[in-house]
Design a protein around this nucleic acid. Structure first.
Lengths: 202, 202, 202, 202
DNA sequence: GATGAATGAGAATTCATTCAT
DNA sequence: GATGAATGAATTCTCATTCAT
């Protein structure tokens, strides 16, 4: 029942995440974190071998947990449309649960993404896999699943950025229906095919 | 009318922007910038009063210029849909012209946004004003123009982020038609109104 | 008469000596020693009041014991030459018994020498006393006993240093005969006296 | 004629060497060095990239220079005996010139030895080569040149250690004649060959 | 205008030692 | 006696900024 050590480590990660989210990783100092956690600077190193290690530990399992949260939420639904809607709702809820954590995981993560093992499930791969399957099965029109994934994430994440800048009010949950409808529309409304050889941007 | 000084200052901003885009503002040192610009560290301070000043000067007029670029591109078109499409194309072109500059302006800008005078035209306000007018005129269904703006920016910017992470190939221009179609679909496809008092997220 | 405490203390000194010999006193941390001894860091302070105290305790009686070991080895022989040979052999054997301990005592000892009580018998004084007596009795030609002692120690210790650097192989015992012959030759072969007042180095 | 930078760097190395010699590398702090050189701590890093770099730079060329000094001194003499004597004198003179530098190079050098390129001439290799040649030519009786080198260095260096501990007075130059005679005696006085298979130490 | 050495205020990290449990 | 978290004083190193030349 030695819950103290774990709790201290968790507490450190907790306060660190909030500082990272509000100031950025680089501009958050060990001193900041120690003060916020009510510890001396040196004491942090009993729990983490380096600042980098702290960032990584704070990131990794929470990021993977977010992926599983999305997967689980989607599993309850049947159709791709419903599953996508469930994921979008879950993303919004995850954001509203702890906006600082969400921002750290999704916007601030400081190059941690590239440190994940190549086949680690992430929020991005979870959505990607759903859309790729739907394209393969014909449930969605033919399109690059990566681009499709980008569109969905863009629609869902950008309102959070606007909210963080005060350009949109309130919890993200309020936008879920709209975002789900917009996402489905964006995925199913493709431009007429361009004749090959013609550059549509010129 | 010796244009050398101006050019030196521009060159400094140029190389600084590329460093900022690739490493981040905080992790780019004065030494880095000086070396890349072919100057001594001290000489930089002949052109900028501080690193902060350099960041700001590198940001401000380019950011406003981007806003005007969008405005100008839109002006040639008639309908809201065409104008929006023109803006989306222009954003993609601006990105492809100089990805580093674009990333600095849109993704890296280190809190410079909040230093802009409140009524400065920005890419965001330009798109916002277009959409707000369209909602007011009934050209778009009734919706929060801020949310509408977020959706458009999300759709357009997220593929760039994916591209930066290697998840999408090639120039953004290739996606313009798709993004324009998706954006218009997202702006015109609203969910059925929910009964007041009911929380759709529960 | 519970011998456990003593043994724990001895075990700590033992592992500390090996760490000191291989990494140096300063670069060996309390954590290193505790880990090697199978103890917690705090527990060390039950046995030693400080790291310094540990170094001193690890050094002192072993250093004096080495002196007695030399003295005893010499006592069995009759002539100065034999006694010196016995001491040289004993030094080599002591080294080969536990090279780490020997290195700690002779090469690493971190300023502990100056903490010995002025009349403590040490390996150096033991050899010195033998040679001084021999000079006094005429068994050795007239010379500074300190210089004579330095010559002997130089001859005996330097091969150990070479061995530690991999420049000489095997146990020091292999060199005993040679070293004894060389030492006696060095002690008995003096240069012709220089005329007083003349500086032979100019 | 910008002699300032070089001088500053040299001054830093100079004071660092003296501190290293008197306290050891590890126990000499950057703060110590900066204070002794009349600089701020940060300023040191304009001249050296790290403390390690400073140690290495202070060591390397001086160590090689010492090797050349010995070589040059020996070149003036004809016979092996005279050459060895010249080297021994030169070692003593080098010590007396700047005892701190000598101690740093020969006694303190903190693992720098292993960083030298494998074929770098060093004081040890210079003496070794002289003795190996003499053994090969029959000028010295058959013996391991490495052991021979160890004997010579032991004889010459140990008095310096004694002097540093106050056990011997004055400049090492005073001992040159004696050391040269002792060294020659040690190199030419071999024990009678032991019958093979017999262990003389048992 | 340019240079680059110098400054000084941190920043991350280490480690002997203490102390509550 | 033992544990290991916590402390706090160094320690190495970084970097924006200044300044003499």
């Amino acid at each position: 029942m030695n819950t103290r050590p774990k709790r201290t480590q968790d507490r450190i990660e907790q306060v660190a995440i909030h500082l990272f989210a509000s100031k950025g990783v680089r501009e958050t100092t060990i001193k900041d974190i120690a003060a916020a956690a009510g510890l001396s600077e040196g004491a942090l190193y009993r729990h983490f071998t380096s600042k980098d290690d702290l960032v990584w530990r704070a990131f990794e399992h929470r990021y993977v947990a977010l992926a599983f949260r999305l997967k689980t939420a989607a599993a309850a639904a049947m159709t791709t449309r419903e599953r996508l809607g469930a994921m979008i709702r879950e993303i919004a809820l995850a954001h509203d649960d702890d906006p600082a954590l969400f921002h750290f995981l999704v916007f601030v993560q400081h190059g941690q993404l590239s440190r994940l093992a190549p086949d680690t499930p992430t929020p991005v791969t979870v959505v990607h896999d759903l859309l790729a399957a739907a394209v393969a099965s014909g449930e969605l029109p033919g399109q690059d699943p990566n681009l499709a994934t980008a569109l969905v994430f863009g629609l869902v994440l950008q309102p959070m950025t606007f909210a963080a800048y005060g350009r949109l009010p309130g919890p993200q949950a309020a936008y879920v229906e709209r975002l789900a409808a917009a996402a489905w529309a964006a995925l199913t409304t493709l431009p007429p095919p361009t004749a090959p050889g013609k550059d549509p941007t010129s």
